[in-house]
Simulated scan of single mutants.
Amino acid sequence: MAARMHDDDSCGAAAVASGWSLGDKDFAFLSDFVYKHCGIVLGEHKRQLVQGRLVRRLRALRLDGFDEYVNLLRSDPDAELGELASAISTNVTSFFREMHHYDLLANELLPNWIEKKKRSSDRLRIWSAGCSTGEEPYALAMVLAEALERTGSKVDARILATDLSPQALGAARAGTYSLERMGGISEERRNRWFLKGEGTYEGLACVHPRLRELVTIQPLNLLHEWPMRGPFDAIFCRNVVIYFDKPTKQRLFERYAGLLEQGGYLFLGHSESMYGLSDSFDLVGRTVYRKCK
């Protein structure tokens, strides 16, 4: 999940208004639960934030306190995990964020991959791990579709987009965006890859059916088992691992290496680094890593 946690005054106000307090025992359980299932470390300084965010969830579930919520997590953790992750996280994403990654794909990687796949009849696969509300995989799909059009290729090419948050996945599947969220897209691409919303979607832009054909959206917890076997030519995992501790990052990078083609690429966010965490990759660009063994 491409997400971040930040302080929110409204969260604290909501918690105070509710009269509920997140005690030591329940916070300790939630911290352990979130770390185990999401890889996110919740320090004591995040208690007020967590308390305020979860008050909304307690109300939605008609629960009378944090102890009842903890009991719900104990009895059926998988059923509530996605909602918990959504509640404590703020999705941060945009179209063509960190444009140099897309330039590398369009100008160098995709032309080479497509030519290679044409000769070998192999599949071309890209994974957006932590796709949030869909801006990243649809931006990747635009670049991929344009590369395929330029070559006239019939290569079997697809993008897998995964996230833990049910709300984020719902938005990604809808593929409809306000005009304010289209700032990173050129006018040419807006006209080519988006349709003007009508009726219920008045005032919104809807992604072109061709992009939907290229993108498969699925729920996935990066810390749990992965059903896909790869191999992938590239994995985008941007603004995700910054909130993990060192052991979690190390395990995740090795799992990514196991799913990448030899010489495949891993893209991280602008504030993330693999330095001292993995021997399986070489740094080849700004937060761009290539599998070396």
Rank of each mutant, 00 (worst) to 15 (best):
L81D: 05
G199K: 09
G263N: 10
E83N: 15
D32M: 13
S121K: 04
H101T: 01
P209L: 13
T200D: 10
V70H: 06
I114N: 00
N221G: 07
S94R: 13
A106H: 05
Y289W: 11
I114C: 02
F29P: 10
G152F: 02
W113R: 11
L277A: 01
L266A: 07
Y256S: 11
V284M: 05
L124S: 02
D156S: 12
L277N: 11
D24N: 06
S21I: 15
L268H: 02
V143A: 01
Y177N: 00
G184T: 02
P209D: 03
R229E: 14
E146H: 11
N91C: 01
A205C: 13
S165Q: 10
G199H: 06
F33D: 01
Y289G: 13
A141P: 07
L211Q: 10
D67C: 12
A139D: 04
D26M: 08
A87G: 11
R56D: 12
L124F: 04
G23L: 04
I185N: 00
R119Y: 00
G285S: 08
L252E: 04
C131R: 00
L81P: 09
V92L: 13
E108A: 09
G130E: 04
L109R: 09
E68S: 14
S10V: 15
Q48H: 14
Q51C: 14
E261A: 09
T151S: 15
D233P: 03
